[in-house]
Amino acid sequence: MAYQHIIDSERCKGCGLCVNFCPKKVLEITDKVNAKGHFPVYQARPDDCIHCTICCIMCPDVAISVVETEKVTTD
C-alpha cells in the first residue's frame, strides 16, 4: 500500500505543531505567505515521510491528510 501526504497550504495557519512532533523531521514552515496571511508548512524532506499521520493528529485545522494511492511502489 502506498500513501501520499497532502498539505492544504491555504487552510494551514503555520502554527508549527506538526513540525514539532514529526518523528522524521520532514516538515518546515515556508516563507511564502498564503491568502490568509499565514506561512504554511511544507514537506522539506518528503522522502523521509513514513505516513504515520502524527502531523494529522496534531493539526488543529485538518490541513494535512494522507491518502492511499493505487500505484504500488517498489520500496
Binding site: M1, Y3, E10, R11, K13, G14, C15, K36, H38, I50, H51, C52, T53, C56, I57, P60, D61, V62, I64, S65, V66, V67, E68
Partner: peptide, 19 residues
C-alpha cells in the same frame, strides 16, 4: 503508514481559531 482524512461531520469552513 495509514490514511487520514477530514471527518464528514466537520464542515469544510476554515476555522476562526488562533493558530
Amino acid at each position: 503508514g495509514k490514511s487520514f482524512s477530514t471527518p464528514k461531520s466537520l464542515s469544510d469552513n476554515y476555522t476562526h481559531y488562533c493558530p
